[in-house]
Design a protein around this nucleic acid. Structure first.
Lengths: 121, 121
DNA sequence: TTATGGCTTGATGGAAACATAAAGTCATCA
DNA sequence: TGATGACTTTATGTTTCCATCAAGCCATAA
């Protein structure tokens, strides 16, 4: 498709990728798919408690970005991650969040220590 | 259950992180900071050609998310990545994009091959 | 003190994303 | 065949994001 043949500047492609990950429902779906390789829409509905059309909208976003693959078997639809690297990216994000949280806690402790050592304000 | 491993609140935090990366200008800034540890606003303006206020808005987003740190020295402001893991995340995203592009090209080739082998339509 | 340079913040109209509901598709069952 | 179940797509009002411009710091120079 034209998307693949005429890619936008790399920064925009990358931004689009991140944008497509910028919603809690879509993160949840990708986490489910990271935990078990194939998940049906019915299972996702059960796991998330969402309304079908709502979930489906978000699945469409992930499909358009080629992050997941849909496979219809009979009347059910099964999803898988299009690439293992999707799970790696989520893992990378998780690590970053941990690092940020730790740094913030250290900063907080440091601020308290500083304030204490020169008399609280 | 996946619930225990990936609690819902964390998904929202993660989504916020990705959302903050979902803009070409912010990606560009983070890549500049990945390439050289400290970059002044003046240098970013030169590198991007943006209007000062526009860049500043995006820097504010990155600061709020604790992805970058601002350090004022005299009248200039210097930025650094708040965590090395930010650069790792970008690298991870780059790899994913490459994988996706390669998969799409393979699919395209396969489609062409299939069509050819049964007579083009 | 006023002025200037370097950035940030606030305000605003327009574009994109979101949640919900209605309608549509496709496969299976009666 | 018609009906039902499992999803997806379309349509909608609402919220959020974005680019632009005006105004507001803060530090240095005059």
């Amino acid at each position: 498709m034209a998307d693949a043949l005429f890619p936008a500047p790399l920064n925009e492609v990358k931004a689009e990728l991140f944008k497509s990950l910028g919603h809690p429902v879509r993160i949840r779906v990708l986490e489910l798919l990271s935990a078990s390789p194939t998940v049906s829409v019915a299972e996702m509905l059960a796991a998330t408690g969402l309304e079908a059309s709502h979930l489906s909208q978000h699945l469409a976003v992930l499909r358009r970005q080629n992050l997941v693959i849909a496979d219809r078997r009979g009347s059910q639809v099964f999803y898988t991650l299009a690439q293992p690297a999707v799970a790696d990216l989520l893992k990378s994000a998780r690590k970053l969040l941990v690092d940020i949280l730790q740094a913030n806690q250290l900063n907080l402790q440091q601020s308290v220590a500083d304030a204490t050592s020169r008399g609280a304000e």
